[in-house]
Design a protein around this nucleic acid. Structure first.
Lengths: 324, 324
DNA sequence: TACAGTTACGGACCGCGTAAGCATA
DNA sequence: TATGCTTACGCGGTCCGTAACTGTA
């Protein structure tokens, strides 16, 4: 059993069992992968893949378990390399972050600016994408951190730490009937077509449910993944916008009237997640700390050794998170 | 970075940094180890060992961490092999158990007889030793299970599951003054020299403390690791014996008078421990179940995913254990 | 002088890449 | 015919064992 064989195995398992594609990703040739997988299976004495003729159709039950342990093994290998580089140079390395539009656009710029000042030699990668996209990248270890809001279910292999909370605000053009209502009720809101986030309609704290609980069925004019898109369509008069408070800029959005909505909708929590069992470099701790001052190294370590996300949540149950 | 290099590293770290000895244990030559370690250090870019001239004197801080991850990696490698064999043949493999005298002599024979009937093809190894000895073997992954009573502190890397509880009994020759006392008090006991286990004098539930709490300082004639030794010296009239109830055989020990002592001393719990993160084969689950019927596969799995021994203990806090 | 680690060197092995073969859609 | 896995083969690298060397008790 060689490390490389396990790397091959992991790549194939993560590439829909396509050896050719896996080989390309591994910067090697397809016969090499083919042969090593066969050797590995021979050595272990079990079939890892179900072959239909020459095609790899699926993974056997034994294979599932082998792949699981192989992934954990490879993570430890990563940890060894990571800890070595940590001791070689604490301020060099790479940091890949996956996040959603709102964070990337409104929150992270300030954080990243500070981070880059402190660690100019750390290579920084920012990937923006939908939640499902982020979950997949986290799963494949393509990103060190995922930063997002809402549903934790997709990130089963990650430790998710709450960073801060935020409220929604209602935005309308200055000439809109709601523009002068200070504390609109759900009924008033439901009378107008809405423009809001796609993700606001999934998960436990969805708008849908809030309205439904009040016996209302709002009309949705448009959903977007992107606050700027929502603002644009609100400006066009398409409907009443519901956006994150932190996505509103006093200057740039001065033409829109924004109305408090904290009394209508539940609060949202933005979290940062990293692979359970992954090594955190010093600059990674620092990045987390920049994102959320209450997440000190000690707190992060405490959460990292938790066996499940429920434990982590319990850890933060009584903590007052910053609101932005 | 090669698997072999990590195996070499682990062996050296576990052999007092003696390359020659490590090489012997690995069935290879010393220059091979020497070279691979050097290559590993070069690749990682950190010194793992502190060299004094040519002698390896200690492990660097970076080395400590690397070794830690390497051990975890090697465990996953073991798991891969284990799970493969599990699928090849559920009833073949090996089981190494380390335990103390009392368990080996009075409890395990029945368990092992049943186990061997069920799994005749599993190679069975039983190692008897002192608690510290067992802890070391567990640390080095030389045994799959450790079975012992009392102090859990030495087994930090293990998950310890409570199996059953037992009380001490007092044993005296038939002509001893205490022979006719039904419920002796600590004062009466302290009036005679005692013969008991060495380990009874360490840990939180020690005899020492029980007597001290009553303001007494008993005279100890002899301590042994072995119930049979204690009985022998009690027969010789050396003193009053305090032994585990389960070490008394109605037939063989008919010449001794045994007296209830549950009212005097706290109860003892015998546990079975295995490496956290280690793979449990089917026959291993079955062995545990034979040891303690309440430890079903489900319960064991539940405990195995706990992050700390405290969690495990909490899991069993409300369980009524069998007493033997 | 015994012991422990390093250096040097030759041979065996192994893993990769190229190229040709062979199924399936 | 195109795609994708397998087999065959040769090259280059690597790892190990032997042996000679070096520093230390």
């Amino acid at each position: 059993m060689k490390l490389q064989q396990l790397r091959f195995l992991a790549a194939v398992a993560q590439t829909d069992l396509n050896l050719t594609a896996a080989a390309a990703k591994l910067h090697t040739t397809q016969p090499a992968v083919s042969k090593q997988l066969k050797l590995l299976e021979e050595e272990l004495g079990v079939s890892i893949f179900v072959r239909n003729g020459r095609a790899f159709t699926k993974i056997t039950p034994a294979g599932e378990r082998v792949v699981m342990y192989a992934l954990r093994l490879l993570r430890e290998a990563q940890n060894i390399k990571g800890v070595s580089q940590e001791f070689k140079d604490e301020e060099q390395g790479a940091l890949s972050i996956g996040t959603t539009h709102t964070q990337a656009r409104y929150v992270l710029p300030a954080v990243i600016r500070q981070f880059r000042e402190k660690y100019p030699d750390v290579e920084f990668h920012l990937h923006q994408g939908a939640l499902e996209h982020l979950a997949e990248m986290a799963q494949l270890d393509r990103i060190d951190f995922a930063i997002a809001t809402g549903s934790q279910d997709l990130f089963r292999k990650c430790v998710l730490l709450p960073c801060y909370q935020w409220h929604r605000r209602i935005i309308v053009p200055a000439d809109h009937p709601l523009a002068h209502v200070k504390q609109p009720q759900l009924e008033e809101l439901a009378a107008h077509p809405l423009v809001t986030y796609v993700f606001s309609f999934t998960g436990p704290s969805s708008l849908q449910e809030t309205f439904a609980a009040a016996g209302l069925r709002p009309k949705v004019a448009l959903t977007a993944r992107d606050s700027d898109v929502i603002k644009t369509y609100v400006r066009l008069g398409l409907g009443v916008g519901i956006v994150a408070e932190l996505a509103l800029d006093p200057k740039d959005d001065a033409d829109l009237v924004s109305i408090e909505a904290a009394h209508l909708f539940p609060v949202h929590t933005t979290w940062i997640g990293f692979a359970r069992g992954g090594l955190l470099r010093r600059y990674m701790y620092d990045f987390i700390h920049l994102m959320a001052p209450h997440l000190t190294r000690r707190v992060v370590d405490l959460a990292a050794v938790c066996g499940s996300q429920e434990e982590v949540n319990a850890l933060f149950a009584n903590i007052q998170l910053p609101v932005r």
